[in-house]
Amino acid sequence: MADTPRFRRAPMPNRAPATVADAGAVRLNKRLADLGLCSRREADEWIERGWVRVNGQVAPMGLKVTPQDRVSVDRQADAMQAQRVTILLHKPVGYVSGQAEDGHQPAVTLIDARSHWRGDASQQRFSPAQLRGLAPAGRLDIDSTGLLVLTQDGRVARQLIGEDSDIDKEYLVRVAYGDVMADVQAEFPPAQLARLRHGLSLDGQALRPAQVDWQNPEQLRFVLREGRKRQIRRMCELVGLKVTGLKRVRIGRVLLGQLPPGQWRYLGPREGF
Results as ranks from 00 to 15, higher is better:
residue 104 H to V: 14
residue 104 H to T: 09
residue 105 Q to C: 08
residue 107 A to S: 09
residue 107 A to Y: 06
residue 108 V to T: 13
residue 109 T to G: 09
residue 110 L to W: 11
residue 111 I to F: 14
residue 115 S to C: 12
residue 115 S to F: 12
residue 115 S to D: 09
residue 117 W to V: 06
residue 119 G to Q: 09
residue 119 G to C: 08
residue 120 D to I: 08
residue 123 Q to N: 09
residue 125 R to K: 12
residue 125 R to C: 05
residue 125 R to F: 04
residue 127 S to Q: 13
residue 128 P to R: 11
residue 129 A to D: 14
residue 131 L to E: 10
residue 131 L to A: 10
residue 132 R to I: 08
residue 132 R to M: 05
residue 133 G to L: 05
residue 135 A to Y: 05
residue 135 A to S: 06
residue 135 A to E: 11
residue 136 P to Y: 02
residue 136 P to M: 02
residue 137 A to L: 05
residue 138 G to S: 04
residue 139 R to D: 04
residue 140 L to Q: 02
residue 140 L to G: 02
residue 140 L to N: 03
residue 141 D to N: 06
residue 141 D to R: 02
residue 142 I to C: 02
residue 142 I to P: 00
residue 142 I to G: 00
residue 143 D to Q: 09
residue 143 D to F: 03
residue 143 D to K: 07
residue 143 D to T: 10
residue 144 S to L: 00
residue 144 S to W: 01
residue 145 T to Q: 15
residue 145 T to H: 01
residue 146 G to W: 02
residue 146 G to S: 01
residue 147 L to C: 03
residue 148 L to W: 06
residue 148 L to V: 08
residue 149 V to L: 07
residue 152 Q to Y: 03
residue 152 Q to E: 04
residue 152 Q to G: 05
residue 152 Q to V: 03
residue 154 G to F: 01
residue 155 R to P: 01
residue 156 V to C: 06
residue 156 V to H: 00
residue 157 A to N: 07
residue 159 Q to G: 03
residue 160 L to G: 07
residue 160 L to Y: 07
residue 160 L to P: 07
residue 161 I to M: 14
residue 161 I to A: 07
residue 161 I to K: 06
residue 162 G to L: 04
residue 162 G to Q: 02
residue 162 G to R: 03
residue 162 G to Y: 02
residue 163 E to A: 10
residue 164 D to F: 01
residue 165 S to G: 04
residue 165 S to W: 01
residue 166 D to K: 11
residue 166 D to N: 12
residue 166 D to G: 09
residue 167 I to V: 15
residue 167 I to Y: 02
residue 167 I to D: 02
residue 168 D to I: 04
residue 168 D to F: 03
residue 170 E to N: 00
residue 172 L to Y: 03
residue 172 L to N: 00
residue 173 V to C: 10
residue 173 V to Q: 06
residue 173 V to P: 04
residue 175 V to N: 10
residue 176 A to D: 10
residue 176 A to T: 14
residue 177 Y to S: 09
residue 178 G to W: 07
residue 178 G to Y: 07
residue 180 V to A: 10
residue 182 A to N: 09
residue 182 A to L: 11
residue 183 D to P: 03
residue 183 D to H: 11
residue 183 D to Q: 14
residue 183 D to M: 07
residue 184 V to K: 10
residue 184 V to N: 08
residue 184 V to M: 09
residue 186 A to E: 10
residue 186 A to Q: 14
residue 187 E to F: 14
residue 187 E to C: 12
residue 188 F to I: 12
residue 189 P to L: 13
residue 190 P to H: 13
residue 191 A to C: 08
residue 191 A to V: 14
residue 192 Q to C: 13
residue 193 L to N: 13
residue 193 L to V: 12
residue 194 A to V: 14
residue 194 A to Q: 15
residue 194 A to L: 15
residue 196 L to K: 13
residue 196 L to V: 13
residue 197 R to Q: 15
residue 197 R to T: 10
residue 198 H to N: 14
residue 198 H to S: 14
residue 198 H to V: 02
residue 199 G to R: 11
residue 202 L to Q: 06
residue 203 D to M: 00
residue 203 D to P: 00
residue 204 G to M: 00
residue 206 A to F: 01
residue 206 A to H: 05
residue 206 A to Q: 09
residue 206 A to E: 09
residue 207 L to Q: 07
residue 208 R to Y: 01
residue 210 A to F: 10
residue 211 Q to D: 15
residue 212 V to M: 12
